[in-house]
Design a binder for these strands. Structure first.
Lengths: 250, 250
DNA sequence: CGCTGTGTTGACTACTGTCAACAAGGGTGG
DNA sequence: CCACCCTTGTTGACAGTAGTCAACACAGCG
C-alpha cells in the first residue's frame, strides 16, 4: 500500500564490496557457476556492486534495461502492476538469484524490484555480458539455464495459483523458502521470514487474514511454530505432504 | 481428462515441408527474425520439420531435452502436472512461438506439449543452435528476447490468476487470443477457438460451467457473439476495458 | 439414428474475502 | 527511558464469488 521510495536513491558503488565472484559464497548458485578461474575474473571485471536499503526500489516498470542484477546478500521482491494499479508479487529473490531477465525482451523493465531488507547486489551490464558470451561458452550455457529455470519457477507459481487451495499454497510457500535457505547453508527448519504477511498474501493471492489464520492452523496441527516472522518447521515431511497433496480446483 | 496419446507416435520428417525459414510466413515472429539471408540459411540447415496430429503429444514431462520446437502451423497447449496428478495449462502456443525453453535448465522437459489441432513444427537441435550462437550474434540476441518474453508472458498469467476475477480473466483471454490472431494476419474479431471450454477453464483456473456462463454473459452484454468455438468480437474496446478494469483480490 | 463428447443452465454449497475490532511490536521523540 | 503512535498481525462474524452436482441440449460421427 505504501508508495515505493524514490528511485532517485543512488546505487552507491562500494569499493570495499569489490570482492571477486571467486570469493563469493554464492558462486555455486550464481552466474559464474562452473567457470574456470580466468573466466571468472573476466566476469568480475564487468561487475559492479551496490547496496540497496530496505524498501528501496532497485528498478521500476518502464525503466530502461541496462543491467542484470544478482542478489549478493539480502532479499528482494518483484511485482507486476495490473492496469488498475493492483500489485501482484511474482517472486521473492534470495542471494545468488538473478533479477531483470524479464527486461531483455523489450529493453524495458517489466516489474518493480524492491529490497525486503538491506541488501547488496552485483550489477551486470548486459551488453558487456553479451560480449563475454562470445568467448565464454560455459557462461552462456549457464545463463541459458538460469533463464530457463526462471521460466520453470514461474510455471510452478502458475500451478500454485491455479490448482492449489489456500492451505496448500501456504505450505508450498514454506517448503520452498525452507529449501532455499537450506541450499544457502542456513537452517531449513528455523528461519525468519523477510516479508510481511501482506507480501506473502499478495504472492499467494490470499488475504493477510487468511495467511494469519492458516499459520495459526499449521501451528495447531503441530507442523510449525510461528512467532511473528520467526518460523520453525517441526514436521517438514508433513508440510511437504500437505504442499503436494490433493486439492484441485481448475 | 483423457490420457494423452502415446508418445511413440513418430514425428515424421517431411521433405515437402523443408521450406526454408526465408519462405516461412512466421519468420518475422519466429527465431530467424532479423537475420540476414546467409545466416537464415545456416539456421535452416539445422532445422527439421514434422507433423503432429491433433491430441498427439510433442513431448512429455521427464523426456530428455534435445530439441526446441517452433510452431509452424497449428496450435499447442502446454501443461504442468501437479504432484496429485491435476493438470494446469500454462500456455497456448500459436505459429511462430517456441516450445521447450523450460527444459534448458534441467535437460528434461518440465511440461507436456499437446497439439490442439493437426499441426506442423520446426525441430531445432539445441546443441547445434548453441553452435550457431557463437557466430550469429543476432540469432543469440533474438533467442534471449524470446526467452525473456516467455518469462514476461508467464508473469502476466500470474497476474491474471492472482488479481483478476472470473469475467476479467475470460475477457483478458479473448483479447489476448484476438491480438495474436491479428499479429498473424488473421481476423482479430472473428476466429475459431482451437481449444475446448475445459482447456480454457483449466488455463484460467475456472470451471467449464463458469466459462460457459461467462461467454453467455459477454454475449448478452453485446461484447461478443459465440457459437460453439466460433467467436466474433463485437466490441473489442469494451472487452479490453473489461480485461484491464478493476477487480482486485490479492 | 443413436452414441459420445462437449457445452449449457439451474440449484445449492463452500471456500476465501470483506469488514471490523482488537492486540502486539518496534521506532521515534519528548 | 518511557509513552505514544503507527504498522503489522490476529481473530470473529458475515458475505459473495465461483465451485459442485445434476439434468439436459446439441453436434459430430460412426
Amino acid at each position: 500500500m505504501k508508495p515505493p521510495t524514490s528511485l532517485a536513491a543512488p546505487l552507491l558503488d562500494i569499493p570495499a564490496l569489490r570482492n571477486s565472484c571467486s570469493s563469493c559464497s554464492m558462486r555455486q548458485l550464481c552466474l559464474p557457476m562452473g567457470l574456470e578461474q580466468s573466466d571468472m575474473q573476466r566476469l568480475d571485471g564487468i561487475i559492479g556492486r551496490s547496496r540497496v536499503s530496505r524498501d528501496d526500489t532497485l528498478y521500476r516498470i518502464g525503466d530502461k534495461f541496462n543491467f542484470l542484477f544478482a542478489v549478493r546478500a539480502g532479499q528482494f521482491k518483484t511485482y507486476q502492476v495490473s492496469p488498475d494499479g493492483a500489485q501482484q508479487i511474482t517472486g521473492f529473490q534470495m542471494a545468488g538469484e538473478l533479477l531483470g531477465m524479464d527486461a531483455i525482451g523489450t529493453g524495458t523493465h517489466q516489474c518493480d524490484a524492491v529490497a525486503l531488507e538491506n541488501s547488496e547486489v552485483c550489477k551486470i551490464p548486459f551488453v558487456r555480458l553479451e560480449e563475454l558470451f562470445a568467448t565464454i561458452p560455459a557462461l552462456l550455457r549457464h545463463f541459458h539455464r538460469m533463464m530457463s529455470k526462471e521460466i520453470t519457477r514461474e510455471q510452478s507459481v502458475i500451478l500454485l495459483l491455479g490448482n492449489m487451495g489456500a492451505e496448500q499454497r501456504l505450505a508450498a510457500f514454506l517448503v520452498n523458502v525452507s529449501s532455499r535457505y537450506e541450499a544457502r547453508g542456513y537452517s531449513g527448519t528455523h528461519f525468519k521470514l523477510r516479508m510481511t504477511r501482506e507480501d506473502i498474501g499478495n504472492y499467494l493471492s490470499l488475504t493477510i487474514e487468511s495467511i494469519s489464520r492458516l499459520l495459526t492452523k499449521l501451528k495447531k496441527d503441530g507442523m510449525i511454530n510461528v512467532s511473528n516472522r520467526e518460523i520453525e518447521i517441526i514436521d517438514l515431511s508433513a508440510l511437504k505432504m500437505l504442499a503436494t497433496g490433493s486439492n484441485v480446483c481448475g
